[in-house]
């Protein structure tokens, strides 16, 4: 049902009319994805995004950005000489 409502919204909905709870929901979505939200916050978000296509889109975009940030900013290997230099300096300090 949720999927159908979101499809209807995306297909026929107006971009100008925004969900009145969008900002609050977005804040809670971010807390939820950071695992910093309360169970009540989570229940509100999950219930709301099931019915609201705009807030579901926001949730999906937030998730996609987090994944992309992690994927595109892979960790660099630290050069051996940098480690050795630090070890030497510490031993001499």
């Amino acid at each position: 049902m949720g999927k159908f409502i979101r499809w209807l919204g995306r297909t026929f909905g107006s971009k100008k009319k925004r969900c009145p709870e969008e900002q609050r929901c977005l804040e809670l979505v971010r807390l939820m994805l950071d695992e910093e939200s309360t169970p009540e916050d989570n229940a509100y978000v999950l219930n709301h995004i099931d019915k609201c296509y705009q807030c579901y889109d926001n949730y999906d975009i937030e998730k996609a950005i987090r994944e992309a940030v992690k994927k595109k900013n892979r960790k660099a290997k630290i050069p051996h000489e940098v480690v050795n230099e630090i070890r030497n300096k510490i031993n001499l300090a």
Binding site: K15, D57, D60, I61, A64, I65, A68, V69, K72, N73
Partner: peptide
């Protein structure tokens, strides 16, 4: 921002994210 879609981020944006 309203036109941004998750598939654009997942598929097409590469170095732009960094």
């Amino acid at each position: 921002v309203y036109n941004l879609r998750p598939d654009m981020i997942r598929g097409k944006l590469g170095d732009e994210i960094t």
